[in-house]
Amino acid sequence: MSVQIQAEIDNMRKQLHVDFIGIALSKVNEGTNSRTIHWAYVSGNTNENYRRIHLQVGKGIAGIVWRTGRSYQASELQRNPKNLLELPIARMEKLETAVAAPILKNGRVQGVLLFGSRTPNVMEMDQLKSVEDKAEELIPLLEE
């Protein structure tokens, strides 16, 4: 675990006044040769349940962003039971609002940065842009 990445997302969470930040990365299972996505770095977590989340590309918030290479945002996540089944990080961390952006290098997704709030609020375009900008700032740290 990179101490520098952890320190960076801890600082981001405090500066941007969000409840939760996570970075999802992928790894290939040697035995099955399948790619899974997991939450490698988190800040503001309420428990350790995020460690049990292993997603396929296209599933969950991180999987959707990974597959599409595009940002994702959703609100009122706790009010919709379907969201809670399909978005395990929202369920486990009790997130009401989530904004996620791909961490891209040379047009390929290297990771997913997620900002979450436990209180209902409407994400503004500048918040989405902020997450995208922060995702870009993380590229050099993930390369180390």
Rank of each mutant, 00 (worst) to 15 (best):
G60V: 07
L85R: 13
S2C: 04
N47S: 13
V3K: 15
N83E: 01
R52D: 15
G116E: 07
I53C: 10
Y50R: 00
W39D: 02
T119C: 01
I64C: 01
P102F: 08
D133G: 02
D19Q: 10
G111L: 05
R51I: 14
E76R: 12
T68H: 02
A7C: 03
L25E: 13
S26T: 12
K59M: 09
L113Q: 01
E96G: 01
G60M: 06
V28S: 11
A101Q: 06
I9N: 07
A90L: 08
A100K: 04
R79W: 06
E143H: 05
Y72N: 02
L113P: 02
Q6E: 14
H17L: 12
S130E: 15
L77H: 00
G31C: 08
A7P: 06
L87T: 02
P88K: 05
R70A: 11
Q78A: 00
I21V: 11
K94F: 06
E86K: 09
N80T: 03
L104T: 09
G31N: 15
D133R: 01
T32A: 02
S43M: 07
M12W: 14
E76A: 11
S130H: 06
H54E: 13
N45V: 01
H54R: 10
I53H: 08
N106L: 05
T32K: 04
W39A: 08
L138I: 05
L55P: 06
P81L: 03
A98T: 14
I64K: 02
R91W: 13
I53K: 07
G60Y: 09
V3A: 14
G69M: 08
E86C: 02
K82M: 08
K94P: 00
T97M: 11
L113G: 01
A74N: 14
A74W: 08
T68E: 11
P88Q: 07
V57K: 00
G44F: 09
V57E: 10
E30Y: 11
G69L: 08
A40N: 12
V57A: 04
K94L: 11
N49D: 14
V112P: 05
T46K: 11
E143A: 11
S26L: 05
Q73W: 12
A74E: 15
S43K: 07
A62V: 05
A24N: 01
T32N: 11
R108V: 12
R35A: 02
E96Y: 09
K134C: 01
N29H: 13
M12T: 00
M125C: 01
E136N: 12
R79V: 02
I5R: 07
P88M: 08
S71F: 05
R13I: 04
